[in-house]
């Protein structure tokens, strides 16, 4: 039996009495996993970018996906919210089958937050408007309600005084934190991060990772494509290593860093950690 099943069999009172661990992970309480990917295949013309990927992410779990560039990491997480289509296999998020014509992808996407490598803030809108746009037009929140939510989140990501700024007036690190706030404003059940710090100057990486770390500690389900091994060590429950479109290794964070099994993962780790 997994830890999740044991936890699910307890009564609420017993859970409260449990010793508070450093990190509270509300792992699937008898419910389906947050993300279930099985045998996922995708090709761009003759090039096969995903070769039968399997991955299950439990509720509250933080999974880091790493691997060399071109290994299919970004494609895999973009399949999760349907930004990329896949050719074969099955993918379900929060019980909703992705890629099924009957599934309401728009409402599923509204419940999954995504943060992009190049931030992708809307350049013609202010920070506040960026965070309010989907709240108002997708969740149908009132402007007042949306703005209150936006301001609270801006405070949380450490940018309370930037609501009137346009994206071009912010540093990369600030833009990415706004992008995180924009995603969080939708009250997502899970967050996807596609190389969130790859486009940042080194001195700005820390501020973005700090926000992500706090999010992980709050129990958010996260799938993070990143080369930041320090973040993986601190925040991830599991690390997935991808190479050439295949998931080569899936291991608990400690196991991955202490004794990676796959040769390619060892090589990758030794290269990236020696930098």
């Amino acid at each position: 039996m997994t830890k999740a099943h044991i936890q699910a069999s307890r009564t609420p009172a017993e859970i409260v009495e449990m010793p508070a661990s450093a990190r509270v992970v509300p792992i699937s309480q008898g419910r389906k996993p947050m993300v279930e990917i099985s045998k996922l295949y995708k090709s761009y013309g003759p090039i096969e970018v995903l070769k039968g990927c399997d991955l299950v992410v439990e509720r509250g779990e933080v999974v880091v996906i790493c691997g060399p560039s071109g290994s299919g990491k970004s494609t895999l997480i973009k399949c999760v919210n349907g930004l990329e289509r896949f050719d074969r296999g099955a993918l379900a998020v929060d019980g909703v089958a992705v890629g099924d014509r009957a599934s309401d992808m728009t409402s599923l996407r509204a419940r999954i937050g995504m943060v992009f490598q190049h931030f992708e803030l809307y350049p013609h809108l202010t920070v506040l408007q960026n965070i309010c746009l989907a709240q108002v037009h997708v969740l149908k929140r009132s402007k007042v309600e949306a703005q209150a939510k936006a301001r609270a989140l801006l405070a949380r990501v450490g940018l309370p005084d930037k609501e009137g700024a346009y994206p071009a007036q912010l540093s990369g690190g600030q833009q990415q934190r706004v992008a995180i706030a924009r995603a969080l404003a939708m009250d997502p059940v899970a967050m996807l991060f596609d190389e969130p710090t790859s486009a940042l100057d080194p001195e700005m990486i820390g501020e973005v990772l700090a926000v992500m770390l706090e999010l992980a500690r709050d129990g958010m389900t996260m799938i993070v494509v990143t080369h930041e091994m320090g973040f993986a060590r601190k925040a991830a429950d599991r690390v997935v290593f991808m190479d050439k479109g295949a998931i080569v290794e899936t291991a608990s964070t400690q196991q991955f860093f202490d004794e990676p099994r796959a040769e390619r993962a060892k090589l990758f780790l030794s290269r990236i950690l020696s930098q």
Partner: peptide, 16 residues
């Protein structure tokens, strides 16, 4: 394309 993707990722539809 990233602008379309960012908007889609927030749950906005095509015409929105």
């Amino acid at each position: 394309p990233g602008q379309w993707q960012a908007a889609y990722a927030c749950g906005l539809g095509y015409f929105q």
